[in-house]
């Protein structure tokens, strides 16, 4: 089933929509949530929340990049659950702090619009990077993979992964400075 066919099921308010979504993207969503939550019960709760969130969001939403959009829904909910109950793997905080340290000096965004503006700049920057560097960055800082898991996924050594992430963080800092966002 294509993403469009899946979205059409939601638009038709079909009873099969959620089961089709679970069949197609259940493992992916579980992997995203599993990286961000350390308790399996929290992962299950997160996924149940997400199926409902997707049902409520579509329609009217018709995401162009459904898988990425769905991943963001899961990530957002998983982080919220992790914050609420204080149970999350150390890699989540570690990866965020690693990136935050590279962007030190910048004030936190104050509004949703400022978050979106900064995220849009980071997205623009990532599109200028080579695909493998982009993937490594996102595995570490969006999916919250450990450095070792990022290395294994990219087929790189751990030291090469650390080195590549260090350099891309520096390039991101320079880019954001040039854009006057830091």
């Amino acid at each position: 089933m294509t993403d469009q066919e899946l979205i059409d099921l939601f638009f038709a308010r079909s009873e099969q929509a959620v089961s089709a979504l679970q069949a197609q993207y259940g493992p992916y969503c579980r992997a995203v949530a599993g990286n961000l939550l350390s308790d399996i019960r929290d992962v299950d709760e997160c996924l149940n929340d997400c199926w409902l969130a997707v049902w409520r969001a579509i329609p009217p939403a018709r995401p162009e990049h459904f898988k990425g959009w769905l991943g963001a829904v899961v990530r957002n909910r998983a982080l919220a659950i992790g914050r609420e109950n204080g149970r999350r793997p150390a890699t989540v905080g570690d990866s965020a702090l690693e990136l935050a340290a590279a962007l030190s000096g910048a004030a936190d965004p104050h509004s949703e619009a400022e978050y979106r503006e900064l995220a849009a700049a980071v997205s623009r920057f990532l599109w200028t990077e080579r695909p493998e560097i982009r993937a490594a960055f996102l595995r570490r800082y969006w999916y919250a993979d450990s450095v070792e898991d990022t290395a294994a996924r990219m087929g790189w050594s751990v030291s090469k992964t650390k080195s590549a992430l260090f350099r891309v963080r520096n390039r991101l800092r320079d880019y954001l400075k040039k854009e006057r966002l830091l």
């Binding site: 898988k67 959009w69 991943g71 990530r75 990136l99 980071v122 800082y141 969006w142």
Partner: peptide, 18 residues
């Protein structure tokens, strides 16, 4: 703040990193 910023990245990027 970093976690929030990353939440708003372009979904097309996220797909590619899977």
């Amino acid at each position: 703040a970093i976690l929030e910023v990353m939440d708003h990245l372009d979904p097309a990027l996220i797909e590619q990193a899977d």
